[in-house]
């Protein structure tokens, strides 16, 4: 679950910037990072169907498909599982600091406060928050590189001292053309590589509430660099940025979605 929810923070819109460049100056680097933040800052509601496939290094795997809904205005989100059959109808509803779990076969709800772990994982509130790379990190330009057939900017981000962030050191590779993040690596303070994520394809759409275009990654591949062999694939489809119904994000609504 960590990875789905952690990745959700990157699901949000990216502004398009028509700029082609080579080696970047410090000012340009700062602007680029600010851009990425801005693109991720979602205005408005969000709905999509997410498919997540988790493979473990011992060969076992599990996958599920869920409908994900988010309302930016009052910071609520909802996950409703659709597949596999055994999980269909189960839901998570986050309202303020509470996480409600719904078990459709029993018709029962369970509440946990934010301190408690989510679905038995280590995800924290941070994972669902907006990206604040510009405020939290110092960015430097590393090099112009190639990622497959894409030309990319390679940037290194180090957390500003005194701030509590999930990853102390990040490296990102940004498509020079479209300004989308294509690859991202997270490091520990010691310099040990923890995770590599790829964003091979993006979808561009127009958001009415934002009044601008929004970029959403269609596919995310996360590879665990510590426990090699653990990998997660996230695929998004049917992304909708229209305003969501007012009566959603309630227990009653979630219950009504299954029979």
């Amino acid at each position: 679950m960590t990875k789905i929810l952690g990745s959700l923070s990157i699901l949000f819109s990216l502004l398009s910037f028509a700029q082609v460049g080579t080696a970047l100056t410090d000012k340009e680097v700062k602007e680029l990072v600010t851009l990425i933040d801005a693109r991720q800052r979602n205005v408005g509601d969000y709905a999509s169907i997410v498919f997540i496939d988790q493979k473990s290094k011992d060969g076992s795997s599990k996958a599920f498909e869920a409908r994900v809904y988010r309302r930016d205005g009052d910071d609520k989100w909802m996950i409703l599982f659709a597949k596999p059959k055994a999980e269909a109808g189960k839901g998570y509803l986050r309202l303020e600091k509470n996480l409600f779990l719904y078990e459709p076969a029993l018709g029962k709800w369970e509440r946990q406060t934010e301190r408690a772990s989510i679905a038995g994982t280590n995800s924290r509130r941070d994972d669902f928050d907006q990206s604040r790379l510009a405020q939290e990190y110092e960015a430097v330009f590393v090099a112009d590189e190639s990622l497959g057939r894409f030309k990319v900017y390679h940037l290194k981000l180090t957390a500003k001292p005194g701030l509590e962030v999930a990853s102390p050191v990040l490296e990102i590779w940004i498509d020079q053309n479209e300004k989308n993040v294509m690859k991202r690596q997270e490091f520990a303070l010691s310099g040990k590589l923890l995770r590599t994520s790829y964003y091979p394809s993006w979808e561009k759409m127009f958001s009415k509430s934002k009044g601008a275009e929004v970029y959403v990654p269609k596919e995310i591949r996360v590879f665990d660099e510590v426990e090699k062999g653990n990998a997660t694939t996230v695929a998004l489809r049917d992304v909708k940025l229209d305003a969501l119904d007012v009566n959603m994000f309630t227990k009653a609504w979630l219950e009504s979605q299954s029979r």
């Binding site: 497959g148 057939r149 759409m205």
Partner: peptide
């Protein structure tokens, strides 16, 4: 992931 000729960005 990044080798093929398909575009990286598509329009919805």
């Amino acid at each position: 992931l990044f080798g093929s000729e398909r575009p990286a960005t598509t329009v919805a």
